[in-house]
Design a binder for these strands. Structure first.
Lengths: 218, 218
DNA sequence: AAATAAATTTAGATTAGTCTAAAAATATAA
DNA sequence: TTATATTTTTAGACTAATCTAAATTTATTT
């Protein structure tokens, strides 16, 4: 069995390798986990001993098949628990991350599968992130963001790239939740600030905000 | 915040003090937690520093108000999760203890209260143990067991004093689950083995088994 | 009440995970 | 291509929780 700490490292490495880099750097992991590079080096050695990552000094790490499986199964747990918290316990989408962060480590095959069934096999979590299936297959977002749209284009909100409480809270106030229909009315050339229509209401949104909102064109 | 380990010590001390002893002994705690007396002494000192227990060398420990509150709230969590696992995820009553043992430490007021509401404020867990309310009040069983009954008496099963998988499994095979009606037909004088009626079926049950089955007389 | 047994505590060591500070390797710039 | 900056690793120390073995205290016998 792996400790919570080991699991968190694997998850961090998994997420960092999604961007396609060959060899995730020590510093990047330290940043993500709010720890020090020296601690990361220590842990990486341990994970390498357990064949969860492959590692060569100074060259960064990559997950092995075994390591990836563990990471994906934790992400599966995390996202299923988020669905549970929002759909069954009526939490809001900006409240569930930290709780799911703890629940995800209760990693029993049977519990996960029962939960999945209880929730009726959801495909996405409350932030639009895809939930890996029980074999570890995961649909990756195409990642078209609101900021990619041109004036006049219409789309539907399907996810977010930033999960902070403040961002999610802000989106909710603008009614920019999953499933919301948006239409771009106007784009400021200087800084790409957008004027858009959400539920027939005009909203002004910065590039910083629009580039973190994943949409699907109509 | 308290660590999982600290919480497990508090829970163990709470359960051991239910029998009414003044000063729970180091050895008893070590037994309960499958650890060594010397480790217990170390932890007790730490808990005493945090004002969670009162402790005098060689005299055993007692929970303070603060320590009792923590212990009861963990027990509340544990039992609510057990209800969830059995009623919502269709686990059997002999499967839920270990999972609840992990879930109980995710100790957020809001989560507990939402779960309680979702489950419609249950009063007992799947083993018949009372669930403390949100103020920490807990109904204590009167603890009449099947072994206390005399020939001819009828009763209903309301709980168990022993939570091992093998015992719970055995009971289920005999249909001796919560709510089952029993009638004592015959008691062997020598070893108190009982012949009883459960759902009109005859069952022979040892004293070892009958004294761990909590019942309520009709 | 002295002798023995049992329970409890102390002393010192161990493991997991972390840290700081210094050393080594790699990347970047002049 | 030598010098400088950045990244990564090593060395050594720290904390939480545990352990073994020895010492101490309390309880039980005789």
């Amino acid at each position: 069995m792996n400790s919570f700490t080991e699991e968190n490292y694997l998850k961090a490495i998994y997420k960092l390798s999604l961007s396609g880099v060959q060899g995730v750097s020590t510093n990047a992991i330290a940043d993500k986990l709010a720890t020090k590079p020296s601690s990361v080096t220590d842990m990486i050695k341990k994970l390498a001993d357990k064949k969860l990552v492959s590692y060569q000094k100074y060259q960064g790490v990559n997950l092995t098949k075994k390591g990836r499986d563990v990471a994906v199964s934790i992400i599966r747990n995390h996202r299923l628990w988020e669905v549970f918290l929002v759909e069954k316990l009526n939490f809001k989408w900006d409240e569930v991350h930290d709780l799911a962060e703890e629940l995800e480590h209760i990693n029993t095959h049977k519990l996960t599968e029962r939960l999945d069934e209880f929730l009726d096999f959801p495909k996405f979590d409350p932030h639009g992130d895809p939930i890996p299936d029980k074999d570890g297959n995961i649909i990756q977002h195409k990642d078209i963001t609101l900021s990619d749209l041109k004036t006049g284009e219409k789309a539907v909100v399907v996810g977010v790239k930033e999960h902070s409480k403040s961002y999610l809270n802000y989106l909710e106030q603008l009614q920019l939740v999953l499933g919301a229909e948006v239409e771009v009315k106007d784009i400021v050339e200087f800084d790409a600030t957008m004027r858009i229509l959400v539920n027939n209401k005009q909203v002004i949104i910065s590039n910083q905000a629009s580039k973190n909102l994943i949409v699907k064109k109509n």
